[in-house]
Structures are given as C-alpha cells and as structure tokens.
Simulated scan of single mutants.
Amino acid sequence: MRLYLSINSPYARKVRVAIHELGIAQRIEMVETDPRDPSTGFWDVNPLGKIPALSLAYGSTIYDSPVIGEYLNELVDGALLPKDASRRWRVRTLVALGDGILDAGMAVRLEDMRPENERSATWIAKQLATAQRGVDALERLLPEYDDRVDLGSICVACTLAWLMFRHEEQEWLSGRERLASWFQDFDRRESMRVTRPGLPLEVS
C-alpha cells in the first residue's frame, strides 16, 4: 500500500500515528507529495487534490483520513475502533469534532497565506472562535477518551498538536488543565514522537 501525504499535514499525521499504533508501518510506503501541484500526478490518485490518500495493493484508492483509519484498523482487526456500537459511534463523533476543529484552524491558516490586503479579519475571528468552542468541548469530553488509544484520541492529540504548531499564539491549553495533562501524556507515545512536524518520513 502507498500513503500519499504532506509531512506537516495534521490529517495525514492522524493516519501515520494509527499506522504505528497498529504495527503495520512496514506494509505501507510513505509518499510525500504536493497536492496543489498538477505535475505530480496526484490528482489522478485523488481528484479532490486532498491528502492523505491510500492506494491499495489491488489498485483502488481510499480517502480521506477517517476512512483510511477505519480501513487500516479493520485490515488487521485492530483495537482503534471499538466493536461495541455505542462506543464506536462516540469515537466517530470525536473524530468528527477533531476534524471540524482542524478545518476551522486550516481555514485561518489559508487566510493568513493570502496577501494582507485581501485577508478578512472577520472570517479569521469566526474560524478561531469555532476552533476554541471545539477545544472547550474536547475538555468536557475528556472522560470519553482519557484512558484509551483509538481513532478518537489519536485525532484529538493530532488536532491539538497542529493548533499549537500553527496557531501557538491562541494558547489552546490555557485554562484547560485536564486536557493539557492528557495531551502531555499522549504526546509522549512513540507514534506521536516519530510523526512530529518537520521530522523526516519514517522508513517502511
């Protein structure tokens, strides 16, 4: 299998962390790509031009990160998505919450990349407020994931790490002591350490 990614993408990092937690890194080739560059041929892999995307051994491709995570977990009968129905839906909802926070933070990131005279302060404030509400919810939902490693807790950890990487000035963990303590513990996991932004890709 071949995983197309960008080294600093939080969406791709979620999948990379899951791969390590499942112990299948040796089965997947990591391919760093620029999804905005049509010359790479990536648009033939994912016509939406978004990463991550996973090309399977028999030729088809799946995306995006929640689908890839669930596919890989099912592939090896892993424990990253509970078999109990009620817990499974809670994990999926937590993933949706984390991805929604990331989407808001990414919208700010993209707006900040526009020429200064074209940026909308109102839009930036709206997206940051959405992300802050989402992180407040993560603090409240902490009992849902504080002692488990699953697709939900992986998403939460990668979301918080990216927010602090790209929008550190927002002090995301200030006043959220329980969430900060949980994140510090989770961030020490081997899967998080080897996938930190800026590090070379792990070799399969």
Results as ranks from 00 to 15, higher is better:
4 Y>T: 05
5 L>S: 02
8 N>E: 13
9 S>A: 00
11 Y>Q: 04
15 V>M: 05
16 R>Q: 08
18 A>Y: 08
18 A>C: 11
21 E>L: 03
23 G>V: 06
34 D>I: 03
36 R>K: 10
39 S>D: 14
44 D>A: 11
50 K>Y: 06
53 A>G: 05
53 A>K: 00
55 S>I: 04
57 A>T: 14
57 A>M: 11
59 G>V: 01
63 Y>P: 03
63 Y>Q: 03
74 E>W: 10
77 D>G: 15
88 R>D: 00
89 W>R: 03
89 W>I: 09
94 L>F: 03
99 D>L: 02
100 G>W: 01
101 I>Q: 04
106 M>F: 12
109 R>M: 09
112 D>A: 12
113 M>C: 02
115 P>V: 09
115 P>Y: 07
117 N>D: 15
117 N>R: 08
119 R>T: 13
120 S>R: 08
125 A>H: 15
126 K>Q: 09
132 Q>M: 12
133 R>C: 08
133 R>Y: 09
139 E>F: 00
141 L>H: 12
144 E>Y: 12
145 Y>I: 00
148 R>D: 14
149 V>F: 13
150 D>M: 04
156 V>K: 13
161 A>G: 15
161 A>H: 12
163 L>T: 12
164 M>G: 14
164 M>T: 15
165 F>M: 02
167 H>Y: 04
170 Q>G: 11
171 E>S: 13
172 W>Q: 06
172 W>G: 10
177 E>N: 01
177 E>V: 06
181 S>Q: 15
186 F>A: 11
190 E>R: 13
193 R>G: 02
199 L>E: 13
200 P>K: 05
202 E>G: 13
202 E>C: 12
203 V>N: 10
